[in-house]
Amino acid sequence: MKRQISYLWALMTANMKSYNAERKRLFVMALFMMIQNAMFFGLWVIFFQTVGDLKGWKLVDVTRMFGLAASAIGLSLFFFNGARTLAYRVMDDSIDSFLTRPRKALPMLLMSSSSPASLGDITFGPLLWLTLGEVPLSLFPWFVLLTLFSALIFTAATLMMFSIVFWLKTSSRFPEQLFEMLIILSSNILHGQPFGVKALMFTIIPAGFISYLPAQLMRGFDPLLFGILLVATVFYAALAAYIFNAGLRRYVRGVV
């Protein structure tokens, strides 16, 4: 167990060390991501200044949800951006380098890349909570915990989407499109959406579990909702690992 932790730590630190070579790029990209987030969030501010509230949701609720989504996506892309490299790794067979190591391929793949811009996302969330979100510091640990669950589900969803390449090798752009859709839906309000859309957001594209459900829990603790979030996190993580491994078996069979 100790050796396993030491190995995972080594993977993570190696990922972080790769930034040593390009620190300036890291800060510039993080800064621009924060500016981009602020511009996007500005639209919500204008919207709520106009309509006041949306079926009981106020600007403060959206601020908290948007902050959570930004931080969760940022955490996922900072630590596990390797999931997004799966498509091209399968296309050019560079996934072979993970299969010829005496370790499980999944952790190595997930931690094989980090997105520098995501640092901007990670910091944008708490900044938003502290400024417009009116979040007292006492609630911070709770919000951070919800963000971690959200980040895990986002990572699992990303891995599932990019694992499609094992079945549709020629369509590397398709997982990218799904991923972009996931980001857009995760940073939007699902509150007040029709049942069909909600059903979709809580099944195939789990954007509802990434932002909407944690946002509800931010408004007030509900043991049932928290239980659902826990189960969903375990379920999507297990499902993503299963789909990835099934795809990998296809790859080794030479079907891909």
Binding site: S6, Y7, A10, L11, A14, K17, S18, Y19, A21, E22, R101, P102, R103, M108
Partner: peptide, 14 residues
């Protein structure tokens, strides 16, 4: 994006 030295250290762990 790692030095050769860091790559070797990581391989040692792997």
């Amino acid at each position: 994006n790692l030095t050769v030295s860091d790559s070797f250290a990581l391989l040692g762990k792997i």
